[in-house]
Amino acid sequence: MTARILLVEDSALISGALRVLLEASGYDVTVAATASEAIAWPDGSPPDVMLLDLTLPDGDGLTVIGGLAARGLRPRATLAMTGHGDTATRERCASAGCDAVLVKPVPVKELLQIVSDRVV
């Protein structure tokens, strides 16, 4: 079965680039541009991997984790994406249940490796 990725990112430029990358690598990609769109994940089974931008137009990206969990749809792995990899941000992400924190722009090879590690 094709692994499904929920890409939560408000910049169309960035989500476009990541979609090209992930679909070319064989993943099924759904893009959500806001936290509420992400929480409204339409399927009955959760995404395999969620790539989560922390700054979204309707609030803190980390709220998506709780929002999906409340619907019983918490992704199997959540990878936070942020412009700053500082310690405070990493700690916040870890407490919210992220499996990793990636600093944008994530080198393409590294991103593919981390996603494939998490999908297994």
């Binding site: 960035i14 990541l18 722009p105 080198p107 393409v108």
Partner: peptide
């Protein structure tokens, strides 16, 4: 800073996609 980094991230990502032969 956030606004400047956004298109730059897209540029770098697309360039790496091309460079790594993904397309």
């Amino acid at each position: 800073s956030h606004d400047l980094r956004t298109p730059l991230t897209a540029i770098i990502t697309h360039a790496e996609i091309l460079r790594d032969g993904i397309l």
